[in-house]
Design a protein around this nucleic acid. Sequence first.
DNA 1: GGGACTTCGTGAGAGGATTCACAAACAGAT
DNA 2: ATCTGTTTGTGAATCCTCTCACGAAGTCCC
Lengths: 214, 214
Amino acid sequence: MNSYGHIPEATVARLPSYLRTLVDLAAVGVSTVSSEELAELSGVNAPKLRKDLSHLGTYGTRGVGYDVDYLRFEINGALGLANTRPVVVCGFGNLGRALANHTGFTERGFPVLAAIDTDPAKIGHTFDGVPVHSPSEIPEVVKHHLIAIAVISTPVEASQGAVDRLVATGIRSILNFSPINLTVPADVELRSVDLSTQLQILGFHLQKAVIDES
Amino acid sequence: MNSYGHIPEATVARLPSYLRTLVDLAAVGVSTVSSEELAELSGVNAPKLRKDLSHLGTYGTRGVGYDVDYLRFEINGALGLANTRPVVVCGFGNLGRALANHTGFTERGFPVLAAIDTDPAKIGHTFDGVPVHSPSEIPEVVKHHLIAIAVISTPVEASQGAVDRLVATGIRSILNFSPINLTVPADVELRSVDLSTQLQILGFHLQKAVIDES
DNA sequence: GGGACTTCGTGAGAGGATTCACAAACAGAT
DNA sequence: ATCTGTTTGTGAATCCTCTCACGAAGTCCC
């Protein structure tokens, strides 16, 4: 019984970071942690962390702190990570392969069970345990593995087409890494991570720093 | 006369997206674009786009729209992309190699001129035009290529160490892809992109959708 | 040159997110 | 049982962001 009251978007975005810290703490054998410590390790300030956690429920004990295992369990539940969610990667080039191998995906409950690519040399083969299928097989692959989330790492020319096919088969959650603005129906959630956008933001601040000090 | 008046952080984060759209429009031969069109193509609404651009200056002409080339030039300037900023990639595994190959980096003025890795089999060799150096060579590499930005794609165990070395040589802008919370001095800008965090956020919304409709 | 039409730039208001300070609650010692 | 320490949970205030409506400014046609 968690996640009732609306959890703010900004809080949701930070929960994975807290979860990561808690997992690390548990691995080192820590059983209790204060908001001060947990915040420090997660890179936020303590009041923000407490407010964030207060949106999930009251899981701490005053004078003591938070029980690492219990809080971990609760955040896990709030994020819906109780059960694993298989993922398909579309576009099995350098980036796609790196993502499929990325241990963080499987470790956090998002195993990459299949890949899609147009290259005949890859289709039908298995790389690092991930079988590659042709785009026309998307419906069977999705149905067979009960896939609900797709990752796009195709070249930009192919991204919109891949998205359209995925949406047509019922996929409602898409994570896009290709540097292009894709369009999806209103009931599909599309998150885009443009790797070079982040560099551009860094560049902006670098330049600003130079201007500011002149 | 651009980038003086403070540009809001939220606006800065969207400028790269606008720039991308403008480049695409220019490539197709479009010379003028309205805020409505540009917003649609960039995935935001028109008033937001206009407000964003108004922070840079008044570059549109009423009744007509924006001159594609001119606006492109101005956003480019505001983001500090007038000159290229070479980048070093630390950790030349699957992800690191994919990033170094990522055409988006070079295309947008962030050429990857060098990589750092601890694997003796890679050090001294060049992959896809990128020479691999040992961690001890960081200072020379940074100085030689005038590098101001570093990308971290090492395994989590090595990330903090790599960051410390980079900071010691004067790097003040770091883009981290390893799923761990790193600590840097206050005058260093660290942006972290955890690929699986994005999946976790998608997972949260998926679960919420199920709860909401029950 | 004037009028109709289009589109930008922006001020005011609403909605979120962050900060901060402090009361409430618990543990542990005596 | 009481008192002292500590640490949480949260309302109030501030700041940032987004939305929306409309005046201002330009184009185009007659």
